[in-house]
């Protein structure tokens, strides 16, 4: 256990120490000493700054992401169980997914202006495709025997969806949700860089434009921490929701 912790901490500490030592006497304008960046971090991201800049960003992120998840899973279920519908809309969906999500920002600005609504819609539009397509795939790949068994036991209607189809498409849906999460963070930042009066993306660009370099670095570090924390949270949630699947796979691995 101690060995594992030591291994996990060794390299980060080494890198951090290296950065600290190498940058200590740095005269370079763009790469200020780490000590200066950390001081700037403490001064910049105070509680009130977190409340006025980070909280709005997070709220947009969460509402956009959750909406995209609900829409994506709902539509994905509908498309996945209907073969004809799937063949009809699949090329259209592939096209929409292939459009790089950030180019949606100018389009949605036309419709929704530059308020909070625009940012949420941008996030929804960008995140919905991976969730949708993965749900369709997951629903399509549900074991035929399971479906027939469920039918012969009289499991129909809503129970068929919540008890049979959703759980067995679960791992695939989770994969889509994970992809969507990183897209959501990117879109949150981009939409704020484009047009906003608060938020994390806006603040970082402001620092860059006013050449407040240590503050800019501290913003980049904060964004990195945020991305890391969100992916950690997601993994915890995923492990909880898909516990049966992890157990099944572990058992299969032992048997195989």
């Amino acid at each position: 256990m101690i060995r594992r912790i030591a291994y996990a901490l060794a390299l980060p500490l080494l890198l951090f120490g290296g950065w600290w030592v190498l940058s200590a006497g740095s005269e370079s304008f763009y790469a200020p000493p780490l000590s200066e960046i950390l001081t700037a971090f403490g001064n910049t991201w105070t509680l009130s700054a977190l409340r006025s800049d980070v909280l709005p960003s997070l709220l947009r992120l969460l509402s956009g992401y959750l909406l995209a998840a609900v829409i994506g899973i709902g539509l994905g279920l509908a498309i996945g169980v209907n073969r004809r519908l799937r063949f009809t809309v699949e090329p259209v969906l592939e096209l929409f997914r292939a459009v790089p999500p950030p180019v949606l920002v100018p389009v949605i600005m036309l419709f929704a202006g530059i308020g909070d609504g625009m940012k949420v819609i941008v996030i929804v539009f960008g995140c919905v495709w991976p969730v949708l397509l993965n749900t369709v795939e997951g629903v399509r790949a549900v074991d035929g025997v399971v479906l027939e068994t469920a039918r012969s036991y009289g499991v129909t209607g809503p129970a068929r969806i919540t008890r049979v189809i959703l759980p067995s498409a679960g791992p695939q849906i989770a994969a889509g949700l994970r992809q969507a999460l990183s897209i959501a963070i990117i879109l949150m930042v981009i939409s704020e860089m484009f047009a906003a009066s608060n938020g994390l993306g806006f603040t970082i660009v402001q620092f860059q434009r006013s050449f407040a370099i240590p503050e800019m670095w501290s913003g980049i570090i904060l964004l990195g921490l945020l991305g890391f924390a969100l992916s950690l949270l997601f993994r915890l949630a995923e492990r909880r929701a898909l516990r049966w699947y992890e157990g099944l796979r572990a058992a299969q691995r032992r048997a195989g």
């Binding site: 763009y30 990183s182 963070i185 990117i186 930042v189 981009i190 860089m193 993306g201 970082i204 660009v205 620092f207 860059q208 800019m216 913003g219 980049i220 964004l223 990195g224 991305g227 890391f228 969100l230 992916s231």
Partner: peptide
């Protein structure tokens, strides 16, 4: 998981 767009200012 660090979003690559964080590097835009840099």
């Amino acid at each position: 998981p660090i979003p690559s767009v964080a590097l835009i200012p840099l």
